[in-house]
Nucleic acid binder design. Structure first.
Lengths: 203, 203
DNA sequence: ACAATAAATGAACGCGGTACATTTATTCCC
DNA sequence: GGGAATAAATGTACCGCGTTCATTTATTGT
């Protein structure tokens, strides 16, 4: 929002070029079979440039996810304080995953078998998982007055995200005839939220 | 059990030497600050030898875990079929974590702040997590007749393990005055099992 | 034209992990 | 004791990821 002193260079950026090149190669030779050098060669830039835009090879699998990160955090914050904590969580995920268009789902999720990314996807996805867990912990702690280190708080956060991850995995694994993502997420989330609701009966 | 043709060399093995050297160095210089070469040098063996015993640097953090793997699977199998699925899960984890002695808990869990292994621990632990998830999915599917790909089955497995992981983390993070591990695990697991119980009302 | 800014490059390095051929120690058997 | 047989241990070479940092190059405003 604040206007910073413009002068420099911009106008040309290799970011999207790299994304495109990576997507092509991952589909052609799988994720593991593609080196960073391969990507930069196809993009017509030097290897160094890749790391100017992505901090790791796996980051390119999550671009659309990272762009929309904070979505859940924002939704959570917007839900009125009188709504029970776990109900708020369930609603926030429903709202966040409801309007997701297929083309904005990370390649890591949609293209996993094509790109051969089951293992790498897991490891790189874990970082996002832990970020979201921290968000959830803060939310639950804030609503209930419990400390973020509380076993119940931590267990709820992990259980919620575990269910969401499972739903995303099942959704991605289903054929093209599958139902919308948010229905998968909600049905996976319902039992978890029901189970933890009594734990977080905030005063 | 079957006696195979003995002849060869054994008697001397570098495995425990490597474990000890690694433990020392991780505590001295943190996990990230210790290279595989450092470990093998202190152990007085060559770098190649390390990979004869561990398939990765992070594996050494999980030795005690890997030794007792299958514990949960075995417990699950031993529980009579008339016990509801989620009750069986809860009981299996209680039995498996009940008799755990402190010195048999993986370094990855107990020593995390000392060894500075929060991130690497996560990535390497994920592999174990996914193995256990597969075990749970097979169990739940077997008991309920649902397919292992069912959203509910997958969500339950992930949620259960998420709760267990959170409990282990909270337990490790608590001081020496903490309660036994199994009480942490059970209190984390209770809401999840309660929530999913209605989903798996097996016929 | 010139200075400021940032994108792009290049080179070197450390580390994890793999592959594979080779050496060395130990045990069984004659 | 003198071999085979077996497996542990070694050495070497290699690849890919990721980091660091100094340097070049393109673009923009003044």
């Amino acid at each position: 929002m604040a206007e910073q002193p413009r002068r420099g260079r911009p106008v040309a950026s290799s970011r999207s070029t790299l994304e495109d090149a990576a997507a092509e190669l991952f589909l052609e030779r799988t994720y593991a079979g593609t080196s960073v050098s391969d990507i930069t060669q196809r993009a017509g830039v030097s290897r160094s440039t890749f790391f100017n835009y992505f901090s790791s090879k796996s980051d390119v699998l999550w671009v659309t996810y990272d762009e929309s990160i904070g979505r859940v955090a924002a939704r959570l914050a917007a839900i009125p304080p009188d709504v029970p904590a776990m109900t708020a969580v369930r609603r926030a995920f429903a709202e966040a995953t409801g309007p997701i268009e297929s083309d904005r789902v990370p390649w890591a999720v949609t293209q996993r078998e094509l790109m051969g990314t089951t293992e790498e996807l897991q490891a790189s996805g874990l970082a996002r998982f832990m970020e979201q867990a921290a968000v959830l912990r803060r939310f639950l702690a804030g609503r209930t007055g419990m400390p973020t280190e509380d076993v119940g708080v931590q267990a709820a956060a992990f259980a919620v995200l575990g269910a969401v991850a499972a739903a995303a995995g099942a959704w991605a694994g289903a054929g093209v005839t599958r139902a919308p993502l948010h229905t998968y997420v909600d049905s996976a989330l319902a039992p978890v939220c029901d189970g933890f609701a009594p734990v977080f009966l905030s005063s």
